[in-house]
Design a protein around this nucleic acid. Structure first.
Length: 100
DNA sequence: ATCATGACTAATG
DNA sequence: CCATTAGCCATGA
């Protein structure tokens, strides 16, 4: 088991989530189906404009993987960005709901 | 407090 | 289009 996995396992309780993390998750949850937002957008919504990288960190370790529509968060330049579950899955999800 | 890390972004070559 | 550089920020050790 890698460190990262241990960390993830450690934060599976909302109590362990920082304010920033909660805000980020809420912001992402607020993204309507078929819509996509940039990491910057989420950062601003979370109250820390410019913290796009930090947003990435949150989504990366977020224990609510498929629950939260983290696949609707892409790079500001329109690129797919990343996805802890594999870009393939992310692309598929986007193609299903965004493209529609 | 300090350091390393990364699903970022913009600029440059 | 790809690689590099530099700025940016939250998090964990």
């Amino acid at each position: 088991m890698t460190k990262k996995e241990i960390y993830r396992n450690k934060i599976k309780n909302t109590s362990d989530l920082t304010k920033f993390q909660k805000k980020v998750l809420l912001a992402v949850l607020g993204i309507p189906r078929g819509e996509v937002r940039s990491y910057s957008w989420v950062a601003g919504k979370a109250g820390s404009p410019g913290a796009s990288r930090a947003v990435g960190q949150v989504l990366k370790i977020n224990p609510y993987a498929p629950q939260v529509p983290c696949h609707r968060v892409i790079s500001s330049d329109g690129s797919i960005g990343g996805y802890s579950g594999g870009l393939t899955r992310k692309r598929r999800l986007l193609k299903k709901e965004e493209l529609k």
